[in-house]
Structures are given as C-alpha cells and as structure tokens.
C-alpha cells in the first residue's frame, strides 16, 4: 500500500504493517522518520512495525524494540562500573547510561562543595551491582543517556550485598506507559505498605513502603532522608510484608506475561484479583487474574 499526500490517507495508514525492505511511500515530499530509510526518492521500512505519520514525517514504529529512552524518563538501573567522576549504569538500553558525580545529591546537604575526596569516596556511595532510580537528563551524541539523581526521590534503592527491603523485576519496556507517577505507594489491609518504582525502561523495584510515616519522625525530614539515601542497612520486614511484596511482584509479572500495560490501577486490580490464591500460584493463573482485573477496572 502506498500513502498519498492527502489528509484522508492518515486513518488508512494508521494500522498498516510493513516489513523491512517494503516501500512505505514513493512520494518524495515526505520526511524520513525512525524505522525508514530513503532510497532514491522512495521511503523504505527497516523494521517490522506500523506506519505512523505526523504531518510530513513518516516513521515506522517497531512491534518490539529495546528501550530507547526520552529526557525526563524515570528509570531504574544497576551500577555496572565506577569510573572517573562518573558511574556507568545498566538501564537496559543500547548502551550503559552515565551518572556523573556532579549529578547526584551527596550526603550533607545541597550546598556542599564536591571535593577530590568525594571522587575517591565514590564507591562508598554507589558501588557495582547497586540498584538506583534516576531520571534521564540528557543524551550524548552517540545515543548514550546521562542520568541525574538530583531529587530526594531518586537514589540508591538496593545494594549488591543486601536486597534492601524489596525485590527487583524486569518486564518489556513497551508495557510501561509514561505517567505522572512512577513512584507508586500501595497500602493494603493490616497496615501493610508496598512501594513500587516503575522505571520507563521496564526495570521495576518493589519494596516495603513507609506508609508516609517517615516524615513525621524527625524535625528535619530532609536530613534524615539524605542519610538513609546511601545507607546499606536492612529494615526488619515481617512475613506478611514479604508476602505482599512477592504478591505485587508476581502480579506485575503476570500482567507482563499477558501483554498488559503496567499501570497503577492495573497493578491494584491484579492484586485484588489474586488475593484468593497464594502468591506463588499467581504466574500460573496469570490469564485468569488479568481477566478479572480488566473486568473490575
């Protein structure tokens, strides 16, 4: 099928599936977008996907692709290397992301100056294998992402030595929808709180929640959080909390197994639907749980 330069062609093109090498359009007035290449006035697809058109820009959106990333995305990543003034972070993208020492909050307040000793102390802050949550700040010329954790909500979520009060799961990044909140706080029966960090890259960290009690304990909540930020201490977790964390993790994996978008209401509904079975049975009954969750949504 060929796309014409008229406005009416847009709807017909909306769900048109192409394969690599297939001609998308022979009209030379279109601009070349992602997933296409120009071969002598002819636009040809390079991936299996659907043709998308925005004004004069034609692109092919692939059915599946590795995480690409956008500025402002909340991601969860794992430190893969500690380097000169920077950490390298595996965020499941095509290259490791960089986290500059200048782009993190150091313990001791925002106005603290970074000294040479901070560079030497980098491994004490974050070492290889630690999980962090961060935001994509910019991209380098070669497509690598630069991260920052310049907000109290970002930072270390777990270390390689201790799983700090939670568990880490991965799902395909295409199932994560960009939303206002990527830090989700669930409160379940019997005062059990579970926090979920949903990274846009499909990396998700499910942990014991604070239930908002954190801020009231001290006069200076900011100072307290700062100290907690780089701590490696494990909080005590009760059996019920462990089960709740496992249940939420398995519900998210069940949604991913059934190719459902992972959103806050969907996680909540899947959790509700799973309550009549044990947490370890969830993945085997993913179809049933997702059906019930969708019905109640």
């Amino acid at each position: 099928m060929e796309i014409e330069s008229t406005e009416t062609a847009t709807t017909a093109a909306a769900l048109h599936r192409v394969t690599p090498g297939e001609t998308v359009t022979t009209d030379a007035s279109f601009m070349r977008g992602h997933g296409t290449y120009a071969e002598a006035d002819v636009l040809v697809a390079t991936v299996v996907g659907y043709v998308e058109r925005i004004n004069k820009l034609i692109s092919v959106r692939p059915v599946r692709q590795r995480y690409g990333g956008d500025i402002g995305d909340v991601v969860v990543g794992r430190i893969s290397e500690v380097g000169q003034k920077r950490w390298r972070v595996d965020i499941g993208a095509r290259q490791d992301a960089q986290l500059l020492l200048a782009a993190v909050n150091l313990p001791g307040g925002e106005l603290r100056r970074r000294s040479e000793s901070d560079e030497l102390q980098m491994r004490h802050l974050l070492s290889e294998g630690d999980l962090i949550s961060a935001e994509i700040q910019a991209f380098y010329g070669d497509g690598a992402a630069s991260l920052h954790t310049r907000s109290l909500k970002y930072g270390k979520v777990c270390t390689h030595l201790y799983l700090r009060s939670g568990s880490f799961i991965t799902v395909p990044s295409s199932l994560i929808k960009r939303s206002k909140a990527h830090f989700l706080h669930f409160s379940f029966a019997n005062a059990i709180f579970v926090d979920v960090i949903v990274g846009m890259n499909g990396f998700i960290f499910v942990s014991k929640g604070t239930g908002g009690s954190n801020d009231t304990k001290t006069d200076n909540p900011q100072q307290q959080q700062q100290d907690v930020l780089y701590s490696n201490e494990n909080e005590p977790i009760s059996d019920d909390e462990r089960i709740a964390i496992a249940r939420v993790s398995n519900c998210i994996l069940a949604l991913a197994k059934e190719n459902e978008l992972i959103t806050e209401p969907m996680i909540l509904q899947a959790y509700e639907a799973s309550t009549q079975m044990e947490a370890y049975d969830i993945l085997e009954n993913s179809q049933q749980i997702v059906d019930v969750a969708k019905m109640n949504l």
Binding site: T19, P20, G21, Y37, T46, P62, V63, R64, Q65, R66
Partner: peptide, 11 residues
C-alpha cells in the same frame, strides 16, 4: 533480528 526490532535494509 526482526523480532528484536533491529533495523535492516531488507530481508
């Protein structure tokens, strides 16, 4: 490769 969404000139 196509399943992985890697761009190719052709099959």
């Amino acid at each position: 490769l196509m399943n992985a969404g890697i761009p190719m000139l052709d099959f």
